[in-house]
Amino acid sequence: MAGPRFRMTRSRRQALTGILFTLPFAVGFVLFFLYPFLQSIRFSMSQLQIVAGGYQLEPVGLENYRTAILVHPEFLQVFVEAVFRTLIDVPLIVVFAFFAANLLNQPFRGRTLARVIFFLPVIMGAGIVLQMESADYMMTQLRTAANEGGLLSGAVLRNFLYELRIPETTLDYVTSAVDRIPEIIRASGVQILVFLAGLQSIPRSLYEAADVEGFTSWERFWLITLPMLSPLILTNSIYTIIDSFTVGTNPLVKLVRSTAFGGGGFGLSSAMGVLYFLSIAVILLIAGSIISRFVFYDN
């Protein structure tokens, strides 16, 4: 009789403690996240006017969505561009981060320093600096100069590959990737660290067994390293998608902001925000379900 009762109160006490510890988040989530989130949906279907001592909402149905998609001169174009840019960047960043992590996992002199430098963009290439840099006159000048003359510029490579009769779409992908090398490297800091941590958590015994079996390093990579890291490919892809959608240099992020505070109206800006969120949600769902099919789980 005493046993089960004791266990019940104990599990109830457990539950209560857990609730208490996470209570701040539950409160904050409702007040500073869910409520604004729902308000945002409501704003997107209203005409919002600032009046003395507050604001007034006048329901307008889907008018703001119609304006954003059909009337606004820039939105649709910027929106499509932002989505495509993410779709192009994410695989490149994940592949690069994977490659860089494998590189940094090898023993060589200066490896610690290289790691410190590879992670540097997370420290200094965020927020306001990244934003100002992308608009900076000197950087733009240097960038165009490099793209015109450099050996590895997209334009030069494009001519070369065109001669080889490479299909146009592949061609465009490769050349845009080459032009975006700096951006891709600078967006991969966290992802490299995550892959690196994953590489170090692969049990040594697996590689030792592979050596006994006489695996080549090619086989070791495809049969051990890649499957063991596949869950992290999913994690990093999701992280990268979210990151590239919310970074301050994303043109759509800028547009949503300038519409709100630059006179375009809070309602219209909210509608743009909602459409943007929906596109992220759809892309995350599709990417997640595709990638998780290839994920190998050890246990």
């Binding site: 539950a15 409520y35 604004p36 945002s40 704003f43 919310t246 902001r257 909210s270 925000g273």
Partner: peptide
């Protein structure tokens, strides 16, 4: 470290805050 009913729902809310771009709740905030 603790288990209670609704825990996974609340944790889903944590993930939700990561997925929603802050730009979307900017105006209401």
């Amino acid at each position: 470290r603790f288990r209670w009913r609704g825990q996974s729902l609340l944790f889903a809310c944590v993930v939700f805050t990561l997925v929603v771009p802050p730009q979307m709740i900017m105006i209401p905030l």
